[in-house]
Lab assay of single mutants.
Amino acid sequence: EIEQGFLPKGWEVRHAPNGRPFFIDHNTKTTTWEDPRLKIPAHLRG
Rank of each mutant, 00 (worst) to 15 (best):
Q4S: 13
P17N: 08
F22S: 02
K39C: 15
I2K: 14
G10K: 01
P36S: 00
F22A: 03
W11I: 05
P21Y: 15
K39N: 12
T32E: 03
F6G: 15
G10M: 01
L7S: 04
A16T: 15
T31V: 10
V13H: 03
D35V: 02
K29C: 07
K9I: 06
H15F: 12
I24R: 04
P17L: 10
W11N: 12
T28R: 07
T30C: 08
I40E: 09
F6C: 15
P36T: 00
H15C: 15
Q4L: 13
K29R: 13
G5P: 08
L38P: 12
L7F: 05
N27C: 06
A42N: 13
G19C: 01
P21N: 05
K9T: 09
E12W: 03
A42I: 06
P17T: 08
P21A: 13
K9H: 09
H15M: 07
T30G: 04
W33N: 06
L7Y: 01
G5Q: 08
F6M: 07
T28M: 05
P8N: 04
L44T: 13
E34D: 07
T28H: 07
H15D: 13
L44Q: 14
W33I: 12
P8Y: 01
I24D: 00
F6Q: 08
P17E: 14
P21Q: 13
T32C: 05
T31G: 06
T30I: 13
F23I: 01
P36Q: 00
N27W: 01
K9N: 11
D25S: 01
G19M: 01
V13S: 06
H15S: 12
G19R: 06
D35W: 01
G5C: 09
K39Y: 07
T28S: 10
P41N: 14
T30L: 08
T32K: 02
P8S: 00
H43I: 10
T30R: 10
E12D: 02
G46R: 11
V13I: 12
D35L: 04
H26S: 05
P17I: 14
T28K: 09
R45N: 14
K9D: 13
K39T: 13
T30K: 11
L44H: 15
N18S: 09
E3F: 11
I40V: 14
P8Q: 02
I24K: 01
P17W: 06
E12Q: 08
P41R: 11
R20A: 14
F22Y: 14
P17M: 13
P17G: 07
T32D: 00
D25K: 01
N18H: 03
N18F: 02
R14F: 08
N18Y: 02
F22R: 03
K29L: 07
K39A: 12
F6E: 15
H26L: 05
K9E: 11
P8I: 04
R14W: 05
T31L: 07
I2E: 13
V13T: 05
A16R: 03
T28C: 03
T31Q: 10
G10E: 04
K9V: 09
V13Q: 11
P41D: 10
W33T: 09
V13E: 15
N18Q: 00
T30M: 10
W33C: 03
N27I: 12
E34G: 05
